[in-house]
Design a protein around this nucleic acid. Structure first.
Length: 338
DNA sequence: AATATATGCAAAG
DNA sequence: TTTGCCTATATTT
């Protein structure tokens, strides 16, 4: 159940676990047998997220160190494009000597030997080290795939299984660029362009609530970030985009940058300000997909409005509203958001 | 055991 | 605007 922050986190995980390695690629379920065959034995050289799209770049196995620069656009790089959809998930397992071991549903749930925080941005291509390590199952216990595993990536000391994706395909660099051309700016990426977002929202009568869910307007925002960002901005989701002041739209972007980068760093969406949460206390489970860090926010205090229909607004006390719109539930406070 | 639900999207009507 | 699709998990029968 991923929004963009989860996908960026996954990209970092793949970099940490696999960058530079030759991978064994298979499709235990069989539905991706052809694509797996094409990638099997190639070398993962770059892992990149744009919105909810994950791109894993595979060079030919014999690529040399001196060829590494520019691999992201090399014509012979092939990309595994995956999109988790509503319920896709990557599950990780690893050997004791893995740099980190992640076991994940949607996002890494457990890591062994993890540093305090992952790097805040993916390593650049030039940081990728080509290793000669060959994947092996001789030295550690590789678990059997569980469930409908579309793709399995086996590296030197870790395995990653993908289930339930809405998209999973091998594409060329050109095709990757045409996918990216259809995506709006991504607040988590350094190249995310706020001006493009502000201009596009202001050009349309479509409601701001709908536009935030449109990946061509802004990439990576899903139902939770939409609801929460609009609450934090005090904006009624049903207002036409062109009627929202551009300064407010810009403020929404700036807030998304903070919220989504925090989500990518911590593995959970938390949008409540400390003063709007209940008494600090340990009851209640922390949000799924967190690293279980001390002080993590309990699940029932992480949001202002998402999934809180009928409950009192944390700020004004009036009941949170819900309405189905374009097939998705929209949550908001009719008093705080105007 | 069956059903409902989910942080999504594209194609069809 | 509705339908179909991908799958695991929680809830209900």
């Amino acid at each position: 159940m991923p929004e963009g922050h989860t996908v960026h986190r996954l990209a970092r995980t793949f970099d940490t676990l696999y960058a530079g390695q030759v991978l064994r690629v298979s499709s235990p379920q069989g539905r991706f047998a052809d694509g797996a065959g094409v990638l099997d034995g190639r070398r993962l050289v770059v892992s990149e997220a744009w919105g909810k799209q994950l791109f894993l770049g595979f060079a030919p196995a014999d690529v040399s160190d001196t060829q590494v620069t520019g691999l992201t656009r090399a014509p012979d790089t092939l990309w595994l494009r995956t999109h988790l959809g509503l319920y896709g998930a990557w599950t990780f397992a690893g050997a004791p000597d893995a740099p980190e071991v992640a076991h994940a549903i949607g996002a890494p749930r457990r890591r062994i030997g993890e540093r305090d925080s992952l790097p805040s941005s993916a390593p650049s291509v030039s940081d990728v080290r080509i290793t000669s390590v060959t994947p092996t199952s001789d030295t550690w216990d590789v678990p059997e795939p569980r469930g409908q595993v579309r793709v399995r990536l086996l590296g030197a000391h870790a395995v990653a299984d993908l289930t339930g994706p809405t998209a999973c395909e091998v594409i060329t660099t050109d095709e990757k660029q045409s996918v990216e051309a259809r995506l709006g700016p991504d607040p988590i990426r350094d190249d995310g362009d706020p001006a493009a977002f502000v201009a596009r929202v202001g050009r349309s009568r479509v409601t701001i609530g709908q536009q935030l869910m449109d990946q061509a307007v802004v990439a990576g925002v899903g139902n939770i970030y939409r609801a929460e960002a609009l609450f934090r901005a005090g904006v009624d989701p049903l207002r036409p985009g062109r009627e929202v002041p551009s300064a407010t739209v810009r403020a929404i972007w700036d807030d998304l940058v903070v919220l989504m980068r925090d989500g990518a760093d911590h593995g959970a969406i938390v949008t409540t300000r400390p003063e709007d949460r209940g008494p600090a206390g340990g009851r209640g489970r922390t949000r799924q997909n967190t690293d279980g860090a001390p002080g993590a926010v309990p699940a029932d205090q992480a949001f202002y409005v998402y999934h809180r229909d009928g409950l009192p607004c944390r700020v004004c006390g009036s009941p949170v509203l819900v309405k189905e719109l374009a097939g998705r539930n929209l949550f908001w406070c009719g008093t705080c958001q105007t």
